[in-house]
Amino acid sequence: MYWLHRYNRLVAAATLVLITAGGLVTSTGSGLAVPDWPNTYGYFMFAFPWSGMVGGILYEHGHRLIASVVGMLTIGLVAWLAASEPRRWVRRLGWIALAAVVVQGLLGGITVLYFLPPPVSISHAGLAQVFFALVVSLAIFTSAGWLARYYRTSDGERRIAADGILRALVIALPAAIYVQILIGAAMRHTGAGLAIPDFPLAFGRLIPPVWDAGIAIHFAHRVGAVIVTLVVLATAGHVLAHHGGRRELVRPAWLLIAVVVAQVTLGALTVLSARDVTINTAHVATGAVLFATAIVLGLRTHRDRFRDIAPVGAPAPERAQA
C-alpha cells in the first residue's frame, strides 16, 4: 500500500502539471494552434517532430502529450488497484477516474475540432478538476494516515463527528470552490477575463454601472472569490480554534489560508496585468490546489463515515462501505 500511495501521489502531481499546461494553452490563446485531433499536423501525436514545437504548438501539443502521460498513469493506477486494493469501492473509484480521463480526452478533441465552443471548453475545464479531485481522493484513501484513522482516539473521533459546524463547512467549501472554478472557466472561455478592467472596483464603482454577459460572468467570479475566501476563513478558523491538536486537520487548514490569499492576489494581478500569461496560468493552477486542499480537509474530517476502519496500526482493511 505504501508504494501504491506513492504512485497515487505521482498521478495527482502529474494531473496538476496537466491542469497547469491546460491553463497555459488558454492563457496563450493556443487552443487552436494544432488544428487537427487526435493527430498533430497530420502526424501520429507521438511522432510529431520536436522541431515543430514552436509558438502555440508548444503549449497545445505539450498539453496533449502530458495528457497522454496522465492517461497512461491512470491506467497503471487502475491496474495496481485491481491487483492489490482490497476495498471494492476504492477499486471502483479508480475505474471512475479512468472513465473521467477518457471523457476528458474526448472533450479536449471535440473542443479543438469545433473551434473551442464555450460549453465544451468549460466542461473540459470542469471535468479536469473532477478528475484531479478523484486522484487526490484516491491518494488520501491509500495513505497510511487514512488507514490508521489518523491515530485518533475514540474520544477524538467522537469530538470531530459531533462538530456539526465543521462537518457542514468542509462540505460547503469544496462545493463553493468548484462553483467558483466553473464560473472562472466560463469567464476564461467566453473571453470575459477583462470585461471589468479595473480592480478592486468595477468601472470605478462597487457594482458595475453597465452590464452585459461578460461583465456579469466576471463580476460573479469576483463575488464568488469573496464567498470562497469567507468560507475558507470560517473553516480554517474553526479548525484552528476547535481542533488545534489534530495535525491532519490543522495542516490543510493553514494551507487553505495560504493558498486562498495567493489565489486572490493572483486573480487581482491577472486583471491588473491585463492577463499576463504567467500570472493567469498560476491562477488556474492555484485554484486547483485550493480545491484539492478543501477535498483533503473534507475527507479527513468525515473519516469516520467510511466504515472500512482497521485497528490502529493494521496494514489494510478487508472490507469497505462508503
Partner: peptide
C-alpha cells in the same frame, strides 16, 4: 481486468490514427 485494460489500450491507440480536414 487485464482484458479490459488491454482493450482500452488498443482503443486508445486506434483512436490516434484518424483525423484530417
Amino acid at each position: 481486468t487485464l482484458w479490459t485494460l488491454t482493450t482500452l489500450l488498443v482503443f486508445a491507440t486506434a483512436a490516434c490514427g484518424g483525423g484530417g480536414d
